[in-house]
Every structure is written in C-alpha cells, then in structure tokens.
C-alpha cells in the first residue's frame, strides 16, 4: 500500500468513527484545496454520499469565483450546504476593508465569531435548496457538537500539536496541556455534555500529499490555484483583501506537484500570502485559541 492510500484509509476510518459517534455532525468547507480533498474523502468513506451538512463561513469578501464554485459543486454532488455570516459586523462596517479593524480583528469578527455563532445556531443559517439553487434561512437550526475540519499538522507549529479528535469546552477553549491521549486507532469519541469535538481527518497530510491526491483522484479544484497566464497563482485562498497570489507559472496539478517537489517553494511558507498571519507573532495560534480553524 503506498502512502497516499495509507493516508486515505486512515482519514476514511476517522470519518466513519466521527459519523458513528456524533449525532449533530457537520463539516467545514472553505472551498480551498484541503477541505475539498476532505469532502472527497467523505465521499470515499460513505461510498459516494456526504451524510452531514457542510458549513461555509462567508465573510462577504471571499474571492467571487469561490462562491460560484461552491454552489456549483453543492448542486452537482447533492450536498447539504449551510452558509453563515456575521451580518452585524458587516452591517456596522466593523471590518478591515472598511478601515475599522486590523486584519486580525477582522478575522476574529468575520471568521471566528461567525463560525462559533453559526455552529451553535445563534446566528441565522442559510441552507441551499437543491431544487431551486437558492439559499433559504434554515428553520429550527440545531447546534453542531461535532465539527470536521481540514487542518494539517505541517501548516503551522500550533497545528502540529493537534489530535484527530480534539475536545473543546463550550467556550471553545483549547487546553493544549490536558489533551486526552489517542492510542493506535482509538480516539476520544466519548464526551461530556457541553463539550464540542473538532475532528481532523487530514492531520497527517502535507501540502504535497494534498496535491498528489488531487492528481491521483482527479478531484475538481477551484482554478484560482493555477496560473491563468499572468505568472501568478494562489497557494492558499481566503478573503480577497488579505490574500495575495505567489509568483508561479504552475498551470496544472502536475505543475504544482513539480513545483513543490523540486523545492521551488520551500523557502516560502504556505500561508505567506495570508496577510493576517504576519500581524502577530503567534499568527494562526492567536486565532486558534479563539476557535478559528
């Protein structure tokens, strides 16, 4: 068994454990390459089905192609698509593009806060009607207690400390020191009332593995990752005002794999195009402790 198959099998196992153990389960889909691989792995685990809702936090500043791609795939794959947003912050213009917040403050409001309040159903949630292709406000929305997310341990130092099944208190605090152990294929699927579990099937994957798998499986990926002829491409995608493309002429998946393998990018961190990371020494870590994935 080659190592991509090994990674796939382990992720599938984790998906199935999560599905068996948590009633109110959802999966975060950021439309990026990692969570799209995650979505593909869900289809692997459940033989073509995705038996739980996908949650996307729309900051309203996402690159427009992302939204179009999201809805196209949701319709094609029959996905239960849920979208959440911090409508109050947007209405009051408390954002970085409006000039009323730092990048990190903006991330906290439009991503972390929006995520918490969407997961616990205190913000209104929009659900895609697969018959009409329109989003409708979800009635009787229930809080999600199990959340599958596509984080990888090679992305950043703090993510390398994660567990596959990672409990959070109701406040979404992450107690790094007292994390329960995980042995072999046994995860912490029992939890006290009020605990939320974050499930991380991609923890062992690297950026290269992701692209190799996309190639092997022929997974449809948003074209923002490829050079469209201008000599630049996105390596990591997010909000338009804070995400910048890198210099690269990689036009296809094999081009990107080649680029990563030959070490052309080894001098540049994967998230270097994400401006909010540079604002604070802890970068992602600060957002992590606040509950951002």
């Amino acid at each position: 068994m080659n190592y991509l198959s090994q990674l796939e099998a382990k992720s599938v196992y984790i998906f199935r454990e999560a599905y068996k153990s948590f009633k109110d389960l959802c999966m975060l889909w950021s439309i990026g390459k990692d969570s799209t691989v995650l979505l593909w792995l869900a289809k692997k685990a459940f033989f073509g089905h995705v038996p739980f809702p996908l949650v996307h936090i729309d900051t309203s500043y996402k690159i427009p192609e992302m939204i179009a791609y999201r809805d196209k795939l949701a319709m094609e794959w029959n996905l239960t698509m849920i979208v959440g947003q911090n409508e109050v912050a947007l209405k009051n213009k408390q954002t970085f593009p409006d000039g009323n917040a730092t990048r990190l403050q903006c991330c906290k409001r439009l991503k972390s806060d929006a995520l918490h309040r969407t997961l616990d159903a205190t913000y209104p949630r929009k659900k895609l009607n697969l018959d009409t292709g329109e989003y409708e406000t979800e009635k009787n929305a229930i809080p999600f207690t199990g959340v599958i997310a596509g984080i990888r341990s090679d992305e950043e130092g703090s993510r390398s400390k994660e567990r596959y099944f990672s409990p959070r208190e109701t406040t979404n605090d992450w107690n790094i020191e007292e994390q329960p152990p995980e042995l072999w294929n046994q995860f912490n699927t029992d939890f006290a009332p009020g605990t939320h579990i974050r499930i991380h099937p991609l923890l062992d994957w690297t950026e290269l593995n992701i692209w190799e798998y996309i190639h092997q499986e022929n997974i449809p990926i948003i074209p923002l990752y490829f050079d469209q002829g201008k000599g630049t491409r996105y390596r990591s995608i997010g909000c338009a005002p804070c995400t910048f493309p890198i210099q690269s002429t990689a036009k296809t998946v094999p081009d990107i794999i080649e680029e990563l393998r030959t070490g052309k990018l080894s001098n540049i961190a994967e998230r270097s195009g994400r401006a909010q990371d540079a604002e604070d020494g802890g970068g992602l870590e600060t957002l992590r402790q606040d509950g951002y994935m």
């Binding site: 341990s153 130092g157 703090s158 390398s160 400390k161 790094i176 062992d204 020494g281 870590e285």
Partner: peptide, 19 residues
C-alpha cells in the same frame, strides 16, 4: 518545534508535535 507561545516560555515540549 516548540512553536507554541506558552511552551517556549517553559522550555519543554508539551505534546507530540509532528514534523
């Protein structure tokens, strides 16, 4: 490796970090 802030201040590895 000890990339976490509070960990650096103590100078010890708290969890199994992977690289």
């Amino acid at each position: 490796l000890d990339a976490l802030k509070d960990e650096r201040s103590q100078g010890i590895t708290i969890d199994s970090a992977r690289c």
